Each structure stands twice: as structure tokens, then as C-alpha cells.
Amino acid sequence: MRGAQKTTLARQLRQDMTDAERALWRVLRDRKATAGHKFRRQHPIGPYVADFACLEKRLIVEADGGQHQQSRHDAGRDTFLRREGFRILRFWDNDILQNLEGVCDMILRQLSESTR
């Protein structure tokens, strides 16, 4: 996928966010809630688009629906992103919607444990 195509896809994904992605974005976009760390949503990285990425801490947060269950595409994607130096946190949409506070606590722990 070319750069312009990825940008167009990322813009489309920002407009078509799931309920779980919207709920998580409301928290992640507030730097006070993320200890001052900046997150980008639907951010292109290589041939992929990360749901949420903190570039400073090399942390990607993914909100996964049922389509991601046992996905080979996700495994290859994760391998690529890890080779690029990113850590990946995956949460099921249901977990985000039912336990947003717990999800956010886990993200904050990962941000504070980061060495970058």
C-alpha cells in the first residue's frame, strides 16, 4: 500500500471508529489521563495502521473485535511492529466497554515501565 493510500485509509478508519475505539480515544487523547504522553489514533506504521500509538514510548494499543480472533494477519502484523521496536497491547472491545478504567490502568503501567 502506498503512502497516500495509507493516509486515506487512516482517515477513513478515524471516521469509522467502533464504540470501543471511541471510548478509549476519549481517554487517550487527554494527556492528563496518560501522564503527559501523546497518542495518535489510526496511525500508519510501515504497511499497517495502528489503532492508537504513543511514538515516544513505542507503545501500540489495539482495540480488537471478533474479526481478530485467531487472525494470522494480526500475528504477522505484530511481528513486523515488534521488529520496529514497538510493544503491543491488545484489548477486546468488550473489555474496553465494560472495564475502561482497568484497561487505562494497564496502559499507564506499560507507559511507566517503558525505558524509552
Rank of each mutant, 00 (worst) to 15 (best):
residue 105 D to R: 09
residue 24 L to K: 01
residue 101 E to C: 05
residue 84 E to Y: 15
residue 87 R to I: 13
residue 47 P to F: 10
residue 73 H to Y: 12
residue 34 T to Q: 01
residue 87 R to K: 13
residue 103 V to Y: 01
residue 93 D to F: 02
residue 105 D to H: 10
residue 57 K to N: 00
residue 61 V to W: 01
residue 97 L to T: 05
residue 84 E to K: 12
residue 47 P to M: 13
residue 28 L to D: 01
residue 55 L to E: 14
residue 108 L to N: 10
residue 54 C to M: 08
residue 85 G to L: 08
residue 37 H to R: 13
residue 78 D to Q: 12
residue 75 A to Q: 15
residue 35 A to W: 01
residue 104 C to M: 04
residue 77 R to T: 08
residue 40 R to K: 13
residue 39 F to Q: 03
residue 93 D to E: 14
residue 97 L to W: 00
residue 60 I to H: 09
residue 98 Q to G: 07
residue 45 I to L: 11
residue 20 A to G: 04
residue 99 N to Q: 09
residue 81 L to R: 13
residue 88 I to F: 10
residue 107 I to M: 01
residue 90 R to K: 09
residue 72 R to V: 14
residue 70 Q to S: 15
residue 91 F to Y: 15
residue 82 R to V: 15
residue 95 D to P: 03
residue 24 L to T: 02
residue 51 D to G: 07
residue 73 H to I: 15
residue 94 N to P: 10
residue 18 T to C: 05
residue 16 D to V: 13
residue 74 D to L: 09
residue 26 R to Q: 05
residue 55 L to S: 10
residue 50 A to V: 08
residue 42 Q to S: 11
residue 89 L to I: 07
residue 75 A to I: 13
residue 77 R to G: 05
residue 49 V to I: 14
residue 84 E to D: 13
residue 101 E to Q: 06
residue 80 F to R: 13
residue 52 F to I: 07
residue 96 I to N: 00
residue 80 F to P: 15
residue 98 Q to R: 11
residue 26 R to H: 04
residue 61 V to K: 04
residue 104 C to W: 00
residue 56 E to M: 04
residue 23 A to D: 00
residue 69 Q to L: 14
residue 60 I to R: 12
residue 86 F to T: 11
residue 84 E to L: 12
residue 20 A to T: 01
residue 48 Y to T: 15
residue 38 K to E: 11
residue 55 L to H: 10
residue 46 G to I: 12
residue 41 R to L: 09
residue 103 V to G: 03
residue 29 R to L: 00
residue 46 G to N: 14
residue 21 E to W: 01
residue 41 R to A: 07
residue 64 D to M: 09
residue 97 L to P: 05
residue 90 R to G: 03
residue 91 F to L: 04
residue 96 I to Q: 00
residue 26 R to I: 00
residue 13 L to E: 12
residue 106 M to K: 11
residue 40 R to F: 02
residue 58 R to L: 02
residue 90 R to W: 04
residue 25 W to Q: 01
residue 21 E to T: 04
residue 66 G to S: 14
residue 63 A to G: 07
residue 34 T to N: 04
residue 20 A to S: 02
residue 20 A to M: 02
residue 63 A to T: 03
residue 28 L to S: 03
residue 18 T to P: 11
residue 65 G to H: 10
residue 69 Q to C: 15
residue 44 P to A: 06
residue 33 A to N: 08
residue 68 H to F: 11
residue 60 I to W: 07
residue 82 R to A: 14
residue 83 R to M: 13
residue 92 W to Q: 10
residue 102 G to N: 02
residue 73 H to W: 13
residue 108 L to G: 04
residue 31 R to D: 02
residue 33 A to F: 08
